[in-house]
Deep mutational scan, measured.
Amino acid sequence: KPRTPFTTSQLLALERKFRQKQYLSIAERAEFSSSLNLTETQVKIWFQNRRAKAKR
């Protein structure tokens, strides 16, 4: 499956949310993903990858 090209504004929103909170609840993820026009899976995986990056 092809890589999702996130827009700059989506990335800024994702990073801002990640700084507030590294783990989103299912409800938060649902609301946040629809506000960004992304799927919940895209947001879930982005947060997983971002947490992995933060550990490195």
Rank of each mutant, 00 (worst) to 15 (best):
Q20D: 13
I26A: 11
Q10I: 05
T41Q: 12
R3F: 12
S34I: 13
T41W: 09
F47H: 01
S9N: 13
S35D: 05
L24K: 01
S35L: 07
R50H: 07
A52W: 05
S35R: 08
T39M: 02
S25A: 09
A13I: 14
K1W: 02
F18G: 01
R50S: 09
Q10H: 02
Q10A: 04
E31P: 04
T41D: 14
T8L: 14
Q22V: 06
A27T: 13
Y23R: 09
K55F: 09
L36K: 02
E28D: 06
R29W: 11
K44Y: 08
Q10F: 07
S9E: 10
T41L: 11
S9W: 09
T7S: 07
R16N: 11
E28W: 01
W46F: 03
L36I: 12
R19C: 15
R29V: 15
S35H: 11
L38I: 11
P2V: 10
L36Y: 08
K44G: 10
F47L: 05
A27H: 09
Q22L: 10
I26T: 14
F6E: 04
Q10K: 01
A30W: 07
S33G: 12
K44V: 11
I45G: 06
T4H: 08
F18A: 00
K21H: 12
A27W: 05
S35A: 09
K53E: 15
Y23N: 10
F47Y: 03
T8G: 06
E31I: 07
S35T: 07
T4K: 04
Q22R: 06
Q48S: 06
L12F: 08
T8P: 10
P5R: 03
S35E: 08
E40F: 01
R51K: 06
E40L: 01
W46L: 02
N37E: 07
P2S: 09
F32S: 03
L14V: 00
E40K: 00
T4P: 04
Q42Y: 13
Q20S: 09
R3D: 15
K55S: 13
Q48G: 06
L24W: 03
L36S: 04
A52D: 15
Q20I: 06
K44P: 01
R51P: 03
Q42L: 10
F47C: 02
Q20W: 04
A27K: 03
K17I: 09
K44F: 07
Y23I: 10
K17S: 05
W46Q: 00
E28N: 00
K53C: 13
R19M: 14
S9H: 15
A54M: 07
Q48N: 06
Q42P: 00
V43N: 02
